[in-house]
Amino acid sequence: MSNKLSKTDSWAILLITYNRVIKAIEKELKDHNFPNLEWYDVLWALERSADGKLRFNELGEKIDLAKYNVSRLAEKLSKEGLIRIESSLEDKRGLFAVITAKGLKTRMNIWQVYESAILKNFGSKLTNEEHLQLKKILLKI
């Protein structure tokens, strides 16, 4: 690889690396019979919320999904018993996703595989100093 500075090359490498690592993590989750990362992201966002629930639009913002995709994903998670869907008392059209005990347990089980996959496919590739440098660089953006 050339040492010639190209800011667009850096961007391309960042995206390629991100996609490569995500694909490897998704494969490990699938190999352990877990759903994809979107499911984990929903459960994690709900778990971190003050009362385990978020309006669909808030959830979409936290996990960067369009509202129609949040609705579809919420339906799938609800069918699996990982969340409940509740109507807003103030706004009958407003919907909340609420994490269930099964959802909490599932999120923790997924995390065991997810964390291991992060360390294997990303964490182990850099030294501690390189991780600190990367963190500093990314926090500038």
Rank of each mutant, 00 (worst) to 15 (best):
L89A: 14
H131G: 03
E47C: 01
Y114S: 14
L119R: 11
L73S: 13
W11T: 13
E129F: 10
T100M: 03
W44I: 06
W11H: 12
L43T: 01
T17L: 06
T17Y: 15
L77A: 12
D9A: 03
E129Y: 14
K23R: 09
A74N: 09
S78C: 13
R20Q: 13
R55L: 05
D9Y: 08
D91K: 07
K105G: 01
W44L: 00
D41F: 04
V113I: 15
E80P: 03
F34S: 11
D41C: 01
K92G: 00
S49G: 09
K102W: 14
L89W: 14
Y18M: 05
L139G: 03
G60E: 06
K23I: 01
D64M: 08
L134K: 02
A50M: 03
L59V: 10
L82G: 06
E47P: 01
L138G: 03
D9V: 13
E90S: 15
R107K: 10
K105V: 09
A97I: 04
K125V: 14
N121L: 02
R107V: 11
L95F: 15
T127Q: 05
R20T: 14
I141H: 02
E28C: 04
K136A: 12
E61A: 14
K23V: 00
A45N: 04
N109Q: 10
T17A: 08
V42I: 07
R107C: 03
Q112E: 08
N19I: 07
I99A: 04
E47Y: 00
E26V: 07
A45T: 09
T100G: 04
V21D: 00
L139K: 10
T106L: 10
Q112C: 02
W111L: 07
S49P: 08
L139V: 01
S6G: 09
L119T: 10
G52C: 08
L43G: 00
L14T: 07
L119E: 15
G94M: 13
D64S: 08
S6P: 02
F96W: 02
K125F: 14
R84Y: 11
L15C: 10
L89K: 08
W39C: 06
N109G: 01
L5D: 13
R72V: 00
N69F: 09
Y18G: 00
K125E: 14
R107P: 05
E38F: 11
E58C: 09
N36D: 14
G60K: 00
D31N: 15
A45M: 01
L104Y: 05
D51M: 07
E86G: 09
I13N: 10
F122E: 07
R93S: 12
E130G: 08
K62M: 07
L73G: 03
N3L: 08
K7P: 04
R84D: 15
E47S: 06
T127R: 12
L139C: 04
S2C: 09
R72G: 11
N69E: 13
P35L: 01
M1T: 10
Y18S: 13
V98P: 05
H131I: 11
I141W: 02
R72E: 08
I13W: 08
K92A: 03
R20Y: 05
K7H: 12
I25S: 04
T100F: 12
K27C: 07
D51A: 07
G103P: 14
S88V: 02
D31T: 12
Y18A: 06
D9R: 05
K7D: 05
F56Q: 13
T106E: 15
N3G: 12
E90K: 15
N57H: 15
D51L: 10
E86P: 11
S10M: 03
